[in-house]
Computed example of a mutant assay.
Amino acid sequence: MKLLDTLHRWAGGLIGLLLALLGASGTILLYKHLWIGIAGAGDAQRGDLATVAAATEKLMAMPGAQGIIYADARLGLHQLRFADGAGAYANQSGEIAARWASQWERPELWIFDFHHHLFAGDIGEWVIGIAGLCGLFFVISGAILWWRTRRSFQLRLWPKRMSRPAIVMHHRDIGIIAAPLLLISIVTGTMMIFRPFAMVMIAPFGSPAEAAKAMEPPKYKGGPLAQKPPYSAMLTEARRRFPGAEFRILSLPRTPGDPISLRMRQQPEWLPNGRSTLWFDAATGELLGANDALAMPSGAQAFNKAYPIHASKVGGWTWRILLTLSGLAMTMLGSLAVWTFWFRRPKPAKRAVKRAALAAR
């Protein structure tokens, strides 16, 4: 038990600040749609084919446009993507509401990049994944360590004093209260980064091998990107294939010969951007293939629920408030763990001198 306590303290001291920052940034992102501060952000979603097609034709005609994230029930703006992190928000009629040349001009973008990549791309994802595994260890080991002191449990939102013993006691007691929510947040977040970990977590729901195969995008090849692709015809075909589904993400090919992809969200899907996908020949607009997310293996569908649970895209305000408490708890637990480890550590040498002096009296 002493070894477990030592590992818990050292790991918390070394990585607690990162977990605190992830908890704080994640909590801020839960309310992005409320503080984004752009005209039209609160507009009701207009998902009819005519409106979406007209806006798509207008926006994708802009030089350098690479794709669109369509407006949804929370954010009433389309997000247009350009190269090198540039982009724009447009209302649902296709009128530009705001533009930026870099993500640093939009707080919701750089906070998202920090929370998902630590501003370091794939390397940052790996660091966050390792932090997630450490967080999982903290929750499990913390629950084990708390059991020894369960009779002294006191529910306090803040430590009684800023002394090390008071902070440690508060840390254990508030940690055990937040443990179930922290476990959900950490597990779902780590699933999105470490695919092997995700396959272990979805194993009870179905074959991981079948899930991995179903989530692998097919390799379609077509002609070079047309100067003016028939977006309206593609959206019409997509709506025919998936009646009632929302248009979510339109993406142009990254390399010549790749297809244009269109993601849609059918109503039973939890994933906010859906996983029902269609691929069109970039030269002709001809449909090359389609993937129905509702027909995917149960393991893959379980994996697709990780992000909406993690980001409060389901469950309404009740779940969002619970995740807010989880994020605030992670922020407090991580920051106070670092504080006690580096700035309130016990000083064995001084205590030994003091005990020796008392014994000599």
Rank of each mutant, 00 (worst) to 15 (best):
residue 256 P to Y: 07
residue 205 F to G: 02
residue 33 H to E: 15
residue 95 E to D: 15
residue 146 W to C: 08
residue 292 D to Y: 04
residue 170 H to N: 14
residue 59 L to K: 03
residue 285 G to Q: 05
residue 112 F to D: 05
residue 345 R to T: 15
residue 207 S to V: 01
residue 177 I to T: 03
residue 352 A to R: 11
residue 54 A to Q: 11
residue 23 G to S: 10
residue 224 P to R: 00
residue 337 A to N: 01
residue 75 L to H: 00
residue 207 S to N: 06
residue 179 A to F: 03
residue 140 I to Q: 08
residue 16 G to I: 08
residue 86 A to E: 11
residue 201 M to P: 03
residue 76 G to H: 01
residue 180 P to E: 12
residue 127 V to Y: 12
residue 43 D to G: 07
residue 139 V to K: 07
residue 1 M to P: 11
residue 45 Q to S: 08
residue 296 M to N: 10
residue 337 A to D: 06
residue 102 S to H: 06
residue 174 I to W: 10
residue 68 I to T: 00
residue 285 G to R: 02
residue 336 L to V: 01
residue 313 K to E: 14
residue 339 W to S: 02
residue 82 F to E: 10
residue 11 A to Y: 03
residue 196 P to M: 12
residue 189 G to P: 06
residue 137 F to Y: 15
residue 97 A to R: 11
residue 319 W to A: 06
residue 326 S to N: 04
residue 52 V to S: 05
residue 35 W to H: 07
residue 45 Q to A: 12
residue 303 F to R: 10
residue 268 P to A: 08
residue 135 G to E: 05
residue 345 R to Y: 14
residue 354 K to Q: 14
residue 118 L to M: 06
residue 208 P to Y: 04
residue 121 G to T: 06
residue 147 W to R: 06
residue 113 D to N: 12
residue 145 L to P: 13
residue 212 A to V: 10
residue 152 S to W: 12
residue 271 L to Q: 11
residue 179 A to K: 06
residue 80 L to T: 07
residue 351 R to P: 02
residue 24 A to G: 12
residue 236 T to D: 01
residue 9 R to D: 04
residue 312 S to Y: 07
residue 334 G to D: 01
residue 256 P to H: 01
residue 138 F to C: 00
residue 99 R to E: 02
residue 290 A to M: 13
residue 315 G to R: 10
residue 150 R to Q: 09
residue 44 A to W: 14
residue 38 I to W: 05
residue 342 W to E: 01
residue 194 F to L: 15
residue 105 E to R: 04
residue 176 I to Y: 12
residue 216 E to P: 02
residue 333 L to K: 12
residue 58 K to H: 15
residue 280 F to A: 05
residue 355 R to H: 14
residue 184 I to F: 14
residue 138 F to R: 00
residue 161 R to Q: 14
residue 92 Q to L: 02
residue 246 E to W: 08
residue 232 S to W: 00
residue 202 I to D: 02
residue 75 L to C: 04
residue 15 I to M: 09
